[in-house]
Design a protein around this nucleic acid. Structure first.
Lengths: 227, 227
DNA sequence: TTTTCACATATTGTCGACAATCGGAGTTTC
DNA sequence: GAAACTCCGATTGTCGACAATATGTGAAAA
């Protein structure tokens, strides 16, 4: 299980990446207790760097820490995800509106090519859907970058990004929403190309509301069969 | 210099609070290097807890850390603040819209009383303006709470809140914008009381744009006299 | 049987010391 | 004289051990 993403930097950074990956992919179950000594041992490092990693993950909202009681993997319940998507709708909508006036023609064209790749992947097979899912997040991140707003990029990229990925992994098995999603992405790129910020924002907000609607139903089903 | 806010919790938490306070109030200059050993000594603790505090502050965007090169107090340049206010406009606008449908009548009435207090403070004297400034942030936080969205509360409260306070301290000396600000606050409360979310959002966004405009001019003056 | 208390264990919080890395002063060379 | 190199000091990164606190178990009393 050697991690592919360049294992460089301090041990604390390595631990942060590995833990984030394990949490996002579900390798570490939601709500699971994270034992410092145990994890440090398995990562081959001391507890110091690992504690710093946990602090960092707390900042990313991937774990909850309680003083003198340890850290636990965050639990993505319905309310949390609802809140996340609501905030995301506002932020991505804003990013889209600004990006329409800030992105270069080349960047927008690049965005179109990215969607071509997604389409090709979808046509090839429906099996490895989650790889397209990752691509979807790339799409959203490129638009965030297009806003030229560093704070927005940080919020959407570094922090909420991980929570979204976590949500995606959890619900990726039976989502065939890739078709309409791609169509909506194309509409957004079209609005960007026409420099219509208002329309781009509106389309993005609708897109995210749709995603939430889809995921919400999925959670309802899960809760149903759990009961 | 014993800190008034309940000095409880782990040493790392104490260090986080004390450092955050020193940074926000300008006691630690922007861009200043933060020496671990030195700070640990002055706080009477080891470097371990202090390092965790620095990680936490990094998450709050109050310090920048570079591996093997130490931590520095964040520098609030024009672009950073511009980005901050743009994000804040979107988030607070959203909070206001939702709060209009979620806050109880009691909460809205409480908000009005808060403004009465501010008005009384302003009439009493213009000297201690920053205490009113803190009150202003209370006002905004109460509305964030009214959104019932935990993620929004965290973003506006725990993280951006500190950056805003930092910005306020830096520009508080010569701002007499308290008058129009109070007026705008009253309008917002009125819109909330009428359960008009759209209007409340619009007023809040205008309020924040106005604040940014005011601060932007102030920064321009500073840069001017610095050159 | 249930509740409560006390103790033993495990886990977190903290410290001091050591190793690795970076920045700068001084020197050497072209 | 300027540029590059080398070495030294300072600072950060890491580890292991100890202290403080919480968790869980068992026994004793109601």
């Amino acid at each position: 299980m050697l991690s592919s993403p360049a294992e460089q930097g301090t041990l604390a950074d390595i631990a942060t990446r590995r833990l984030a990956h394990s949490i996002v992919t579900g390798e570490l179950a939601q709500g699971q207790k994270l034992n410092e000594a145990e994890l440090a041992e398995s990562f081959g490092m001391g507890r110091g760097p690992l504690r710093e990693a946990l602090r960092h993950l707390e900042g990313m909202r991937l774990v909850n820490r309680i003083p003198n009681a340890g850290a636990r993997v965050v639990v993505l319940d319905r309310k949390t995800l609802s809140d996340l998507y609501a905030v995301r709708e506002a932020l991505e909508g804003m990013a889209c509106r600004i990006a329409a006036s800030q992105m270069s023609d080349e960047e927008i064209a690049q965005l179109g090519k990215l969607l071509d790749q997604h389409e090709a992947q979808i046509k090839k097979q429906g099996g490895k859907v989650y790889s397209q899912k990752e691509g979807d997040l790339d799409f959203h991140y490129q638009i965030a970058r297009g806003s030229r707003n560093q704070m927005l990029m940080d919020l959407l990229g570094s922090e909420q990004y991980q929570l979204l990925r976590m949500c995606r992994y959890r619900t990726s098995r039976n989502a065939e929403r890739t078709g309409p999603a791609l169509q909506q992405h194309r509409q957004i790129v079209e609005a960007l190309a026409q420099r219509d910020g208002e329309l781009a924002e509106m389309l993005m907000r609708r897109h995210i509301r749709g995603a939430w609607h889809s995921i919400s139903e999925m959670i309802a089903k899960e809760e149903e069969e759990a009961a």
